[in-house]
Design a binder for these strands. Structure first.
Lengths: 367, 367
DNA sequence: TTGCTATACTAACACGTGTTACTAACGCGT
DNA sequence: ACGCGTTAGTAACACGTGTTAGTATAGCAA
């Protein structure tokens, strides 16, 4: 049994009785090409007949474009498994990527060890450009990329660099969240971050928390602050530590819905109720957050749109088009549900469907 | 300002005073090559000095290997955003993929329209092989792949095909779940599937449900069965429909944790309690499921290990090694927590940390 | 006839690598 | 001197495509 040789453009050319060049011109619909309708049809017929599919590698070699863009996270293996934000980004990316006939490569880079991993990814021209989500302050490889003039777009921000980026205003969003708690009468407000402060988003959200306290003249109490690590489990652990410290507080700001779920469980296990004993505001507004019990009051981050915008920007960079904005800030908003206790003040009954705000902001155009 | 030309292996050869062939032999550590230690060092020094990174496209062209494998889901855009299972799979895949110096390409294929999309993906040799998760009965393109002898591994199963696959026994797992409810005294048990019955896993889980009922002599009541669509929202909607029908039931089997969260919210809004009014068993055991309120009794699916095994099998296929098992079935297990009411029978107090089973099965070796 | 333009194509090069077949040099026994 | 194996390295081809520069034909004006 013979292994059937690959169908090349030469085969198509032979079958159609033209040159390989002509085949290329027809297949790629080259704008200025002079091809008679008659031969065009013959070529297409032959290609279809033979099942011709251009070789991606050969094409990439000569055109110097792999038609693949990379989504990279600075995470350790194991931290991906629970990332509810990631799937939303993937969704947004795939949408744009499909419209531009690109492919999406996904990878993570261990922030501790192999910082240069994605440098090689792009130097090898495996991918044409990178979308890096969740940048860290200590990422030197990223600056190397910038120097290499590699197309990069950040989802998030990295102060001191000029890399194009899409983000929300984490600081003021966090501030809004905490101010909401303050308005509800709380003054002892704890905080659990979404991640280590090496991540710029985590640092910004903590800053927002501090700013809100400051604005209300509430002193910052370090004992009320702990650090999450992306996943549910970290929230669960940190909240147990916090509760066991027996430092008094009546509300908490958790800078991630995912982490907040763990926090919630820990609170429950201590026999406390949300929001009656501890009011809670979280951050991200994952699709599930409106459905958990109690529904989370949280900052709605337009994850899908962040991804859409980032990929749209990256594609512009790949085409050497000028960006209208190098730093883009999308709007976030506070979704008031049950966990903060604001709505519970009106009524003590079981919440009706009407009260339980399940609305989701859809749409939003690209650039 | 000149655009600096790419560093090629020729540049390295010149710098080291050897031929390009020698550079290739050194860089790739070709086993039988006769290279003196002295020149080997010179070559490596030169490569490091110049920052040489082999061109992926050129390498792929000549070696006929892209070193990329694809993870493909049969989903519509928008269905990815909430998939808690996906992130777990990505985690498992990345682990294996990194160990083999491969890359991971992620894509979805709209099951209605463009079934042949991933056929082209592999015909273009963009990727060396495919891991297809969540196959559907009506996927003809998949059979075409099999005929093309393209390396494919299924996460899930497709009856009537001989494609290598990794899966759990969805049918018997679902049966276990429902039998658990029956043992607790329930006989009016509703069911909401995880997805449309075009997906083999959804069909299998429904079959398990029916089998359990049959085994207990409980008649199948079609009015108690509805179909989810992967996400929370579908569970919420379907459960509202179910509850509004005023058909009596005391328990429900939801074939997906994600969907179950929506179901939970709907039950709550109707003023009913879990498990006192409606007992619930779900399916998947997402990382968050132990932390929601009440913690879900659910079938633990070893998602990360499914992905690990699938990628390990795919890599074997790529190396033309023989598979020890073409169809691999991993174990699933029922995680009994609060939502089914089993533990509530012992006590009516707030559950202690001890009772709230937060243990996670880790580990498990590869092939 | 010559010259010019527009049309419809094609020959040939370039992209950067892996690999096979071959060679040059050297040591060594006879 | 001769033959022969071993070591260390290289020349040259192949992979399949995009693209530039060039050619052949026809049409048409002068």
């Amino acid at each position: 049994m013979m292994k059937p040789r690959r169908v090349t453009s030469q085969d198509v050319a032979d079958a159609a009785g033209v040159s390989r060049t002509t085949v290329s011109l027809v297949i790629n619909k080259v704008p200025g090409a002079q091809i008679s309708e008659e031969t065009r049809r013959r070529v297409i017929a032959a290609a279809l007949e033979l099942g011709y599919v251009p070789d991606a590698a050969a094409r990439a070699l000569v055109s110097r474009r792999s038609q693949i863009i990379g989504l990279v996270l600075a995470r350790r293996p194991g931290q991906v498994a629970t990332d509810g934000f990631l799937t939303q980004m993937l969704d947004g990316l795939l949408e744009v990527v499909h419209n531009s006939d690109l492919r999406l490569l996904f990878d993570i880079v261990d922030p501790e060890h192999q910082k240069k991993a994605y440098l090689e990814l792009v130097r090898a021209k495996h991918i044409d450009g990178i979308i890096l989500s969740g940048p860290r302050f200590d990422d030197e490889a990223l600056l190397a990329l910038e120097k290499d003039k590699v197309p990069v777009v950040l989802i998030g921000r990295l102060p001191g660099s000029d890399i194009p980026s899409v983000d929300i205003d984490n600081c003021s969003a966090a501030r809004t969240a905490v101010e909401h708690l303050i308005k509800l009468g709380h003054s002892r407000i704890a905080c659990i971050t979404n991640a280590s402060l090496s991540y710029t988003a985590a640092a910004d959200r903590l800053t927002g928390y501090r700013t809100a306290l400051e604005g209300a003249g509430i002193p910052y109490d370090q004992r009320l602050v702990r650090f999450g690590d992306f996943n549910v489990e970290s929230g669960y652990k940190q909240m147990h530590i916090l509760l066991n410290k027996k430092v008094h507080f009546t509300a908490i700001f958790v800078a991630s819905d995912e982490v907040a779920l763990g926090v919630k469980a820990a609170i429950r296990e201590h026999g406390l109720r949300i929001p009656q004993d501890i009011a809670m505001v979280a951050f991200d507004d994952l699709p599930i957050s409106a459905y958990v019990d109690p529904p989370l009051t949280t900052i709605a981050v337009p994850a899908v749109q962040l991804a859409r915008q980032a990929s749209a920007m990256l594609i512009k960079l790949l085409k050497n088009e000028e960006l209208s904005h190098r730093q883009l800030i999308l709007n976030s908003s506070l979704q008031i549900r049950m966990s903060c206790g604001a709505k519970l003040m009106d009524t003590n009954r079981v919440q009706s469907r009407h009260q339980n705000n399940l609305s989701v902001n859809k749409g939003g155009s690209i650039e």
